[in-house]
């Protein structure tokens, strides 16, 4: 394929590195399947969604464990959906502000700030949420540690992702479109709504989906503020437990089938993320190939 030795060497090296990256993902999936296999075999996949409650530890004592993941699944979905619904308009608005309205100096500073926000460890967000946000919510409606607190913390965490990726998508809109729109006498907002947003749509959707992935996977901050009661929430003020928090909370003492059941929830998370990436590929694919 290549005549020069250095090209062949580089090719070999790149192949090895790519294979390594792919192998890591495959190994994680295989590991998850192997670890969750005992639970899947003895409990059966169906009972994870139909059991009356989540009492997996009683199986270890010889009793009949209960393995309903639905409350945690709903906890994850509700906190993620809430955060995405709040962060998407805010993120896109920030990106538009940065790209089209802010003076250059302010835009640069603002961008740095968002970049910094992405780098803050989630435990710091969690600490702030626990000490500041949850008490504020408690004043409004007890108990404070709640789905709402989880949603707000996740919103702050994924907002910079949405904003920065959306902005890079806005930046990739060809200048020829902007010049064309200006030459037609379109106002800035008309240009944004009619030309820029349609042109950047694929990139913005990808940004939102990546942020969604982050929200689904986020563990520590949500664990610290959401209350972690295994229940289907009836209002945003009810405490909830997410799938990720469930694993983190119980893995330390889980044995046998209980332990294996936690890996099942890991597998469920993995499948949700795979579906999300598939969706991102499907929506964003056309744009990236173009």
């Amino acid at each position: 394929m290549f005549r020069s030795t250095s090209d062949r060497l580089l090719l070999g090296l790149l192949r090895c590195v790519s294979a390594l990256a792919a192998a890591v993902v495959m190994l994680i999936v295989i590991f998850l399947v192997i670890e969750s296999w005992p639970a899947l075999r003895s409990v059966g996949p169906l009972r994870f969604f139909t059991d009356p409650s989540w009492h997996p530890a009683s199986a270890a004592g010889g009793g009949a464990g209960r393995f309903n993941l639905i409350p945690m699944l709903i906890g994850t979905l509700a906190s993620t959906a809430g955060a995405v619904m709040l962060a998407t308009p805010l993120g896109i608005a920030s990106a538009l502000f940065c790209r089209f309205y802010a003076p250059k100096r302010i835009a640069t500073g603002y961008r740095r700030l968002l970049e910094l926000l992405t780098g803050i460890p989630s435990v710091v967000f969690g600490l702030w949420g626990l000490l500041v946000l949850a008490p504020l919510i408690r004043q409004w409606h007890p108990p404070g540690q709640s789905l709402l607190a989880g949603v707000l913390i996740l919103t702050v965490m994924i907002l910079p992702t949405v904003a920065l990726l959306s902005e890079s998508s806005l930046n990739s809109v060809p200048r020829a479109y902007l010049r064309g729109a200006a030459a037609l006498g379109l106002s800035r907002w008309a240009t944004i709504r009619g030309v820029v947003l349609p042109a950047a749509r694929g990139g913005i959707v990808t940004a939102v989906l990546l942020a969604t992935g982050r929200a689904i996977g986020e563990t520590m901050a949500v664990l610290m503020v959401a209350g972690n009661v295994v229940q289907v929430p009836h209002s945003v003020f009810d405490p909830v437990r997410t799938l990720t928090a469930n694993i983190a909370l119980e893995l330390g003492y889980a044995m046998d089938i209980h332990r294996s059941a936690l890996f099942v929830s890991g597998l469920v998370l993995m499948m949700m993320l795979a579906a999300l990436i598939g969706l991102a590929e499907w929506i964003g694919g056309g744009r990236m190939n173009a």
Binding site: G180, A182, A183
Partner: peptide, 19 residues
């Protein structure tokens, strides 16, 4: 806005919007 309504412009490279 009204100036550019009165004075249209065509560019070197065709630039229809992605609509």
């Amino acid at each position: 806005i009204s100036l550019r309504r009165r004075v249209g412009m065509i560019f070197q490279k065709p630039n229809p919007f992605p609509l």
